[in-house]
Nucleic acid binder design. Structure first.
Length: 524
RNA sequence: GGGCCGCUAGCUCAGUCGGUAGAGCAACGCCCUUUUAAGGCGUGGGUACCGGGUUCGAAUCCCGGGCGGCUCACCA
């Protein structure tokens, strides 16, 4: 941060954390999710929000422990429609997701599959948390003390939970803050029978199994969600954790957890904020998204470079809803980012000082690692799309055509070009997509039109004209053959790219190169 | 029933220590003879949902109301 005033929400949050939890050497920031299905882009908002705050704290010279909890000891309660082998999955309902098989056949379990997906892509956007696996921890009885504490204070817990329930929904009968996966059948179809006041818990299962287990050795006992969360806050000493709006509501899980961590575990609740959901506009890829297709970080990174992906989130306040677009808006997002980049590097003036420092900060936070030593090469996304189509998607060839590219700028350009090509071929509106007519075919044209095309061909063959001169010449040709310029343009675009309109013609012809243009127009 | 969020230009929205209302798109105009726009430059355009209050001053803070949306109370 260059300015003392926190202009960015992540910096403001960092200051708030320090204010609420005191000036410490190290802070713990947490995020987490249940890998019960594809971890989609909405889930990603939480982790990147934490990452941005973590970076803000570090910018203030603080050490930060960034933990990401995989809640893989949660129950598998329904089969998502986008998963293969639905029958096999259905057979494992009510078991912990860590015991459900990976029906893709790739990883050791259903949960692990989704974890691996996320863990392998996060470094690409510069996010490197410490992963915690709750199944492993519960099975190792890591939380025995926490569970016993909950049992001891179960009346307090009951009171907290009941506070927000109406008369019809108050907890009936015995309340147990724990649930058990049966040791015989692995399902949570169990009922707590009793607790001996110390470590012993008895349960019975629908499968007929019943036993008394010791919390210090049992692997199937876990806390219910609204107690589990605050217990872990206390266990890890969490200073900051945001939550989605489904949790952040009076009587919601964050709210009750706040009371639980204070009244039962004697710890101050973490600083937090609420993040909104995000929407999707356009289609990220060819697949029709009817069958439970969800957009994830992989989809995002096929169209947006890592910096752009971060930029989407860094540039938007967490508590506002926004949509991630795969349609025409993509161009605008790239343009916005490029402008932010120019402001950072001082090649464009910001409207005022405040805008400048905010844009600079957003730019910093959008980088995967450090801000590069020199300014990256800028090529407008739109123009890049044109060039790629001229070169049939050949990235290296396209980059070689860009004037003045330096070695250190190539990597980013390459990534951008790949994204542009994916966008053009899979997400862009049809009007944006074209290919040069290089199969030797000719369009139907009358005498005058053919003659004009031939003259254009010879003009191009002769060469020696710059864009402006060629542009003027095109009009001359049209006139000389008694054609309205408008109609001649149309005919030319038809001949070249089989569309009624296209990129600004003169420049386009020069970019394609005389040789290819002449070849295409040799059909007349 | 509780809680939260939003209501600013035709559209999408920015603008949270209160200080002359902004951007993009759309529209319109011009681009050195004629110009296809996926180019350049420029212009116009707002009763800030309504009503009160605080203030020298309110889009911004407070109260009341309206409309739209979300969320919780069952599970995570």
């Amino acid at each position: 941060m260059e300015s003392r005033d926190a202009v960015h929400w992540a910096d403001q949050t960092a200051l708030k954390i320090i204010k609420e939890h005191g000036d410490k050497e190290q802070y713990t920031c947490a995020s987490g999710i249940t890998p019960s299905g594809t971890v989609h882009i909405g889930n990603f908002r939480e982790i990147i929000s934490v990452d941005l705050v973590v970076r803000a704290l570090r910018a203030l010279g603080k050490k930060v422990r960034f933990i990401y909890s995989w809640d893989d000891y949660d129950v598998f309660r329904k089969v998502p429609v986008n998963m293969p082998d639905q029958e096999t999955l259905a057979k494992h309902l009510r078991m912990p997701i860590t015991m459900v098989p990976d029906t893709f056949g790739r990883d050791s379990s259903y949960a692990r599959h989704h974890e691996v997906d996320v863990e392998s892509i996060l470094p690409a956007v510069g996010i490197k948390p410490e992963f915690l696996y709750q199944a492993e921890r519960y099975r190792a009885s890591t939380y025995a003390e926490g569970m016993r504490k909950a049992l001891e204070k179960r009346e307090v817990l009951k009171g907290i939970l009941d506070k927000y329930r109406d008369e019809d929904h108050k907890i009936q009968g015995d309340y147990w803050p724990i649930s058990v996966f049966c040791d015989a059948c692995d399902r949570d179809t169990t009922e707590i029978e009793g607790w001996d006041g110390e470590w012993g818990v008895s349960y019975s299962c629908e499968c007929g199994h019943r036993e008394t287990v010791d919390l210090r050795k049992a692997k199937g006992v876990k806390l219910s969600w609204r107690v589990d969360w605050p217990m872990r806050w206390a266990y890890e000493g969490v200073d900051f954790e945001p939550a989605g709006k489904d949790h952040h509501s009076q009587g919601g899980s964050f709210d009750t957890s706040k009371h639980v961590v204070e009244d039962v575990y004697g710890r101050k609740p973490p600083t937090t904020f609420r993040y909104d959901f995000i929407g999707i506009k356009g289609t990220p890829g060819k697949m029709s998204s009817s069958k439970g297709k969800v957009v994830d970080l992989y989809d995002l990174l096929r169209v947006y470079t890592p910096e752009l992906a971060r930029y989407l989130f860094a540039g938007t306040r967490p508590n506002t809803e926004f949509t991630i677009s795969f349609d025409l808006d993509v161009i605008k997002i790239y343009e916005d980012y490029d402008r932010t980049e120019r402001i950072y590097w001082g090649t464009e003036q910001a409207k005022d000082e405040e805008t400048r420092s905010r844009e600079r900060r957003i730019y910093e936070l959008s980088q995967v690692d450090e801000v590069p030593a020199k300014m990256p090469y800028q090529v407008a996304f739109r123009h890049l799309c044109s060039l790629l189509q001229i070169n049939l998607g050949d990235v290296e060839k396209t980059l070689a055509q860009l004037p003045g590219v330096e070695e250190h700028q190539l990597d980013r350009l390459r990534v951008r070009a790949k994204c542009a090509w994916t966008w053009i071929t899979e997400s862009a509106p049809d009007e944006f997509r074209w290919a040069l007519r290089e199969d030797g075919s000719a369009i139907e044209a009358n005498e005058e039109e053919r003659a004009a095309l031939v003259e254009l061909r010879e003009t191009v063959r002769a060469g020696g004209l710059d864009e402006q001169a060629l542009g003027t010449k095109i009009f001359d040709i049209a006139k000389a053959h008694g054609l309205e310029p408008k109609d001649f343009f149309k005919v030319t675009y038809r001949a070249l790219i089989d569309r009624d309109r296209g990129p600004r013609l003169a420049g386009f012809i020069l970019e394609v190169g005389a040789e290819r243009i002449v070849k295409i127009l040799s059909a007349y």
